[in-house]
Design a protein around this nucleic acid. Structure first.
Lengths: 232, 232
DNA sequence: GAGCACTTTATTGCATACAATATAGTTTTC
DNA sequence: GAAAACTATATTGTATGCAATAAAGTGCTC
């Protein structure tokens, strides 16, 4: 391992790219949490992280506090940090807010979307069908992010986009694959079709309610599976 | 000054109440920003704050980073922190989100509001009229917070409540007094009346749109004055 | 053996020292 | 005199040491 590399559970980051250590550690640990290399509830002592990352406790403390802000770790004064556990109600809240926020973003986006944007959404949608047929779930997920990103980024409210991203990031990456079964996928894709049509009609209120329902439905399906396979 | 007191520009906080210094500093500085004791754009060097607060740089750094998270200060790597300036578009965004979030909270609250809650809102509303007549704007503002808080806290989504509070806190306290003139107040109070009626009808969708419009209208009125008196 | 005081250990909170970086000022060069 | 190179200063970033707190273990009392 080159000594100008920050390495943590398979994730790496080059030191001395102008970015402070604190931010790099924040980024690398966030990834580790999203991708399950840090398990929920895992105790994160400053000393052990310090050793694992080969840096002092100072930037680690600051990274942990940032992670606490986005609720990925929980810090109790004088007791320390643990990777956050997502309770059923946490999951529900995350999606409740995601639905509200993304619905609002979509509503606002109607005004700013060009026909090229809707075309992009159509293209993603058709590519998603292909990906689903070939069981290429990785691509499917990427395309889905692009689909949603297309209108979210057109809402003209940067902080709203940020809030939406913050919610989505709290969902472990692996969970997105849980719902990738024929029936949920069918429901999912049909919702996208309706959303596309609503954007074509430029019916902002319809777009809002469709997007909100789309996310809520998906949330309920996910929560059902999570409960059934005893993840939460 | 007792040496177990943390003092900062007129605000004080007792040390050794179990709370870490970092949090106390965060709280005290947040107040100082909200109440205008720290001016927007003011440079906040760790050393000067350290001297002013009689603590080391460490808890100050952590407090500054927390404040950066709620966008009350801006931190540039290797350059340091400044008290955030609210640009016209920042103000617009804050209120845009506040309207979305509080509208959603209100909509959800309809289900959980008891008739006693609506009675409370009516009571606050009538007290606000009195306060307005006697030009007791301080009380008016407090009652207004209670009025809004009544339904916001009934939305059953704690993180939504938190997000709303975070937006409101970014508005300098003094600004709330700017709009306290006869015409805006009349519009404001009429909106409240309509909101109360909508809650009585338990019409969630109507409540949502009324609350959203109420906040948006208020925002536009405030922004108009801010521009006229050249605050932003 | 359960409950309690005491001691030990682990860990965070805070303070401080040093290193790295950015800024301002100064000199040098043309 | 303007631009560039250098120097000095201020400030943040990081490492480390010590203090305060919490948790775990130990022995004592009954």
């Amino acid at each position: 391992m080159a000594d100008n590399m920050l390495s943590f559970r398979g994730f790496e980051s080059e030191i001395s790219s102008g970015q402070p250590l604190e931010e790099m550690i924040y980024g690398i640990m966030k990834k580790a949490i999203i991708y399950g290399r840090i398990m929920p509830g895992e105790r994160l002592t400053e000393a052990s992280l310090s050793e694992e990352l080969n840096v002092s406790r100072t930037p680690i403390r600051e990274a942990l506090r940032k992670l606490a802000f986005v609720k990925m770790v929980e810090i109790k004064p004088n007791k320390g940090a643990t990777a956050a556990k997502l309770s059923p109600s946490d999951v529900e809240e995350i999606y409740t807010l995601a639905a509200i926020l993304e619905g609002a973003a979509a509503q606002r986006a109607v005004e700013y979307m060009g026909s090229d944007d809707v075309e992009k959404m159509k293209a993603y949608q058709s590519q998603m069908k292909d990906a689903a047929i070939h069981n290429d779930y990785e691509s499917w997920l990427d395309l889905n992010n692009r689909f949603h990103g297309t209108f979210v980024h057109k809402c003209n409210v940067p902080s709203l986009i940020e809030l939406i991203r913050e919610r989505i990031e709290r969902i472990p990456y692996s969970w997105f694959f849980i719902v990738m079964r024929p029936d949920p996928l069918k429901i999912y894709m049909e919702a996208h079709e309706m959303i596309i049509k609503a954007f074509l009609k430029k019916d902002a209120e319809l777009v809002r309610s469709l997007v909100e329902n789309h996310i809520t439905t998906n949330s309920q399906i996910l929560q059902g599976y999570l409960k059934k396979i005893k993840i939460i």
